[in-house]
Design a protein around this nucleic acid. Structure first.
Lengths: 214, 214
DNA sequence: TAGATTGTTAATCGATTAACAATC
DNA sequence: TAGATTGTTAATCGATTAACAATC
């Protein structure tokens, strides 16, 4: 039943697989039939060795002298990443960021379907955001459970992050995307991925400073 | 003039330094005077070895039996990361995401001051977003140059990303934060940091799938 | 003083790159 | 066929962890 030995892909590799997939989807829409490891590498600022090494984690073989079949590799990567199925998502936080996420059509195009938007601020509960009506965060556990929500996106102020995570976890959420600065604690069963915009800006500020002091 | 040998901090370390700083600022506001490497490690899911190793890159010593002075370490980290100065920022893209960023007060609190919001869609140019009036993206080179903008945040649709980056670069931008899925090419002089929300969701989807197929 | 925690060196682990035979 | 590109093994590089003497 299990396809092979391609289990347990390291996080750094998974991250790059998402990048390959984005490019392959682009190439597919341009009807480019083949792509080589060195082309992929050049576009992403990697070495072709890294690309080929990465692709050993995935059940798809290239062809000498031609490279990889764009269509087939895209399909295989999508499957590996779970991008071939649809995921139900709850957005928590109806501030500017939550609003933007709820209205962002790209998520649905990529298979991440937002099913509800939540907040704990009474002033925000009941408001409309696109086709959504903001719901009380306290109803999250039931909502997540009943609607079989897979993923919770946390876009609340930092102080509320853990609280909101606990509500999602109580509803048996399967994974969390943490957009706050705070570190969230969850049972090992519940994977968390974090993207911190402020941290990224600080990282960038550091790089700029460094350039200048060379 | 140069403080010591603490040049060229690896990216993985820089990323963690931003996390330490966030915690230290929190502790400072709670008037906690000291913190140990193992406390920091526990909060972030690291080992105390990693924390101490990371802090060797920074010009600050702890004290045996007490740990690190919160106030002093926070100041040193802020300086290393450039979080002690203010940065001028241009947001490009006046869609939902750009709007959210422009209205997000936290950036200013962290020293990243948004000076203008841009778009190339005529329907968006001239609109108000908070206290901003959306400007034509074609005016970016002059604006960046004249207002001495340090950082450009790219929040446009993927197809427009490189174009917009080129305009920022033409104005001699010092660094870019890329919020699109696309890989942006820039001269080595211009550091780029990317945060891809869709990639993060895909990474999460993969982790969820993996848990379930154990 | 006794003991907790640092800074640092050495050991381990993992990820990236190089190299090249296999192959289309 | 000749030559470009793969898959894979080995070498290198870098990052994390372990260990422990120094020290407050």
């Amino acid at each position: 039943m299990n396809k092979g030995k391609e289990r347990q892909i390291p996080p750094s590799v998974v991250r790059r697989l998402t990048r390959y997939l984005a490019i392959l989807q682009e190439l597919r829409s341009r009807r480019t039939p083949w792509v080589s490891s060195s082309e992929l590498a050049d576009w992403l600022g990697l070495t072709s060795s890294t690309v080929r090494q990465d692709l050993t984690h995935v059940n798809f073989r290239g062809i000498s002298r031609k490279g990889y079949d764009v269509e087939g590799l895209a399909a295989t990567l999508a499957k590996t990443l779970g991008a071939d199925t649809t995921w139900s998502v709850a957005v928590v936080g109806a501030g500017n960021l939550g609003r933007a996420l709820a209205l962002h059509e790209e998520f649905a195009r990529r298979g991440f379907h937002i099913k509800g938007v939540f907040d704990s601020d009474p002033a925000k509960i009941g408001r409309r955001i696109g086709s959504f009506r903001v719901m009380d965060a306290l109803t999250l556990p039931r909502f997540v459970h009943e609607k079989k929500i897979d993923i919770g996106i946390i876009a609340v102020p930092s102080q509320a992050a853990q609280q909101v995570a606990d509500l999602l976890i109580a509803g048996r959420i399967r994974g969390l995307l943490n957009l706050t600065q705070t570190h969230i604690i969850a049972p090992k069963k519940v994977p968390i991925v974090a993207t911190r915009i402020v941290s990224s800006l600080q990282e960038l500020a550091h790089l700029i400073k460094r350039r200048h002091s060379l």
